[in-house]
């Protein structure tokens, strides 16, 4: 098992390296010249421009820049923000707790909604509850979360005044962002739970379980759900990885000071080190969470575990 994990981590390295390279090269060929953005408002002489370029290391060949950047990444050095002058890594770490908090509570909301609705919809296929649940899920996957967030804000902050419209603080600040992100994740997760459960409850071993005289509750929870969980965990894990990397849209709407907003602000300000750093960190987060999900499979399905240890 630990050998498997080790191997998977090793396999992750080229993927992260490759993804970082893609991101780095794409963003380095940006049409926006960071030097000009940095010096905007002043009236720079060509010498000033050249000097800034040298200071930023942008005069070197792109490949050299990339490798020195990757070297920095390994040491936790993602360069310095053009705007604040602070190390990008520090800024990222400073924003990370807010993102973690949002991602966790969104996951909570999503699981709380999707798993029960998905299970009941599958058991009572084609019932009114199923229709209702699937309509909800369909609306969930079809509603852009920026709009959902704004509508919640319109209702609960503007009209009713129950919740603050944005910012960071106690529970009242968390509710709307978590619900916005969680509900939009729940749509897909509900559909996945239902289809996975439908697949499993048709299996012969469910009939065996019923023939033992087990109650329907035990049949569903002990025998069906554990088998149905793998695709569900995949989807939920994927969504959690994304949210952990920064829920750009939700954070933007509610002025939530997470890494997603750090990145979007960076884009608007042409702060290239911040953007590259955030995007690469996000990719790493997603990959690591996916790896975690893969390892978690082993605890769900002994066949997968057997495959790992081989």
């Amino acid at each position: 098992m630990s050998r498997y994990i080790f191997r998977r981590v090793l396999q992750l390295i080229p993927v992260i390296l490759g993804a970082s390279a893609i991101i780095f090269f794409i963003l380095s060929y940006s049409t926006q010249d960071p030097v000009m953005m940095l010096l905007a408002g002043t009236d720079p002489t060509p010498e000033q421009i050249e000097m800034t370029r040298q200071q930023l290391g942008l005069d070197k060949p792109i490949v050299v820049q990339f490798f020195s950047y990757m070297g920095g990444l390994l040491r936790g050095d993602l360069g310095v923000s053009y705007n604040s002058g602070r190390p990008v890594f520090q800024e990222y770490i400073a924003r990370f707790p807010a993102t973690l908090k949002l991602a966790f509570w969104a996951l909570f909301v999503s699981v709380l909604i999707s798993i029960p609705i998905g299970i009941v919809s599958a058991i009572k296929q084609y019932s009114w509850f199923d229709n209702f649940g699937m309509t909800f899920a369909m609306l969930g996957v079809s509603t852009p979360n920026f709009w959902l967030g704004l509508m919640l804000m319109l209702l609960f902050a503007v009209k009713l005044g129950w919740l603050p419209s944005g910012g960071y603080g106690g529970l009242e600040y968390l509710i709307m962002p978590a619900v916005t992100l969680g509900t939009s994740q729940a749509g897909l997760a509900t559909r996945m739970t239902r289809s996975s459960m439908l697949e499993v409850i048709r299996q012969d071993y469910i009939r065996t379980a019923r023939a033992k005289g087990l109650s329907e509750r035990v049949v569903i929870i002990k025998h069906a759900l554990k088998n149905a969980l793998i695709p569900i965990v995949t989807v939920v894990g994927f969504q959690f990885g994304h949210a952990l990397g920064g829920a750009m849209i939700t954070e933007t709407i509610f002025s939530w000071p997470g890494v997603g907003r750090l990145m979007i602000d960076g884009i608007h300000k042409g702060d290239r080190p911040v953007v590259i750093g955030c995007v690469i960190m996000l990719c790493i987060m997603v990959s690591v969470v996916n790896l975690g999900v893969d390892i978690f499979y082993a605890f769900l399905d002994p066949r997968i575990k057997a495959g790992y240890t081989k």
Binding site: D204, Y205, R207, T208, H223, N227, P302
Partner: peptide
């Protein structure tokens, strides 16, 4: 006792 032993046992228990 059911027909297909391959699918009649729960794989995760």
């Amino acid at each position: 006792i059911f027909q297909d032993p391959m699918t009649s046992l729960n794989p995760v228990h």
